[in-house]
Amino acid sequence: MRPQAAGARQSESVGNRTARTDGGEREGVIVSGVSRHFTDRRGNAVQALHEVSLRAAPHEVLTVVGPSGCGKTTLLELICGLQSPDAGAVEAAPAALMAQRDLLLPWRSALDNAVLPLQIAGLPRKQARAQALPLFRELGLEGFENARPSELSGGMRQRVAFLRTLLAGKPVLCLDEPFGALDAITRMQMQSWLAAALARQPRTVVLVTHDVEEAVLLGDRVAVMSPRPGRVVQELTIEMPRPRRRGEREIANLREQALRALGAEDPQ
């Protein structure tokens, strides 16, 4: 059962993410024994998740990796309260979802898209824009404040969507393949940017990806999921210090472990 409006709107917490233990369970995510099915177009019941148990401690980055169709998106929607489980329980602080599709509103400019959650929270547009502008520039979007989404590249759109998710001010961020649509170089830049941003302003993050390396690079812990019906088949704790570099030996080892758990051997 979801706790009622736990956590403030704007979590302004600044601190060392590893040392921080206060805030309690309020800002974390606990998924226990959750099953969920959906009905496909032909009316057949499809089991998306089967007795999934996961935990993300406050300010921990949990990455969930698994093949397509393992119920990762369903998992995030459960955490965000957009769906209810058939069985089991989801306890989560208020969560903001960044969906696979950027879902930018085509009639709003890039900056106005980013500040949407602030406006919904009641901030006047002008103030919201002023507040978001520094982050907007930091994301390399300077000069595109008034561009329509149709005028932005895929990478830029993704960054605007990401900023919008951040500005929702929820203690938990649910990121569904946030960098999936990006080219390799932009993707690497965004991964380091995310790691740096979280170091500065810690949030509890549940990041879903099918990229094993990304999961290992960004996560404090990695949950490996099986194909449908999705189950957690392995959890890896990653104690490497940050910033992590993809060339490192330990990363490669962990990556191989995760791939083995997925039932795929590294071809190299």
Partner: peptide, 13 residues
Amino acid sequence: DPDRVKLLRTFDA
């Protein structure tokens, strides 16, 4: 797009 409405809901609209 129902996903857009869903998105707005996650922002407590």
